[in-house]
């Protein structure tokens, strides 16, 4: 019984230590926080450009494949993208790769996607596990033109959950500390005619 208690105490200690290793809130100055905020916004702007390249019918397949891979690097594993349409109710969610592949295969002769008003609606806030989590909202104007000239245009408002985590990587024999920005689910909160 005594040894069982000892084992339990040891396990509890090890668990507490393990939690402590992961939960390492970093003390940061407002200036440093601004740099992180700006970095996360930049990643969303990068995503906006990638989406427009993938959607563009003029983009060669090899290029769009490469850009899809780069786009996936911006997201957390398992992240989903919400898709809405003026022609149906509700929002469908797809894993990001599937969403990008569907976007590339859209049945339009020309697709133009533009993101604007990219801003935080919920500031990055540090969580007990040390990660920063916030929400960035964007407006997307989608314009698809059919061969016969018919146009479909909508504007959707999307909320992107953003995670920023402090990580380290060995480079050239030294340990580099960096902020890893990863995008989570993208939710559609509003869809209207453009």
């Amino acid at each position: 019984m005594n040894s069982l208690l000892k084992s339990f105490a040891l396990l509890a200690c090890l668990t507490a230590l393990a939690c402590d290793i992961h939960a390492q809130p970093v003390n940061i100055t407002p200036e440093r926080k601004r740099a992180i905020d700006s970095l996360a916004l930049e990643k969303v702007r990068d995503l906006s450009k990638y989406i427009s390249i993938i959607g563009d019918k003029a983009t060669p397949l090899t290029e769009s494949n490469r850009v899809i891979d780069r786009t996936l690097e911006l997201f957390m594993d398992g992240a989903q993208m919400g898709v809405s349409s003026l022609n149906r109710k509700g929002v469908r969610y797809y894993p990001v790769r599937k969403y990008l592949e569907r976007l590339r295969a859209l049945n339009y002769q020309k697709v133009n996607i533009e993101w604007y008003n990219i801003q935080y609606i919920s500031d990055l806030v540090q969580q007990p596990d040390g990660r920063f989590v916030g929400v960035i909202t964007i407006y997307q104007r989608f314009e698809g033109t059919m061969e016969d000239g018919m146009r479909y245009v909508d504007v959707t408002k999307k909320d992107i959950t953003v995670y920023v985590e402090r990580k380290q990587q060995q480079i050239g024999g030294r340990l580099i500390g960096f902020w890893d920005v990863l995008l989570g689910d993208i939710k559609v909160t509003e869809t209207r005619r453009g």
Binding site: A35, I36, L39, I171, I176, F178, W179
Partner: peptide, 24 residues
């Protein structure tokens, strides 16, 4: 080849974006 991108220097310590490669 690794490419390091400094996003700011605070109290003498450099903060980086996620390291990338020159090709990327």
């Amino acid at each position: 080849t690794p490419v390091l991108i400094v996003i700011g220097t605070f109290n003498g310590e450099k903060d980086y974006d996620r390291p990338t490669t020159i090709s990327k």
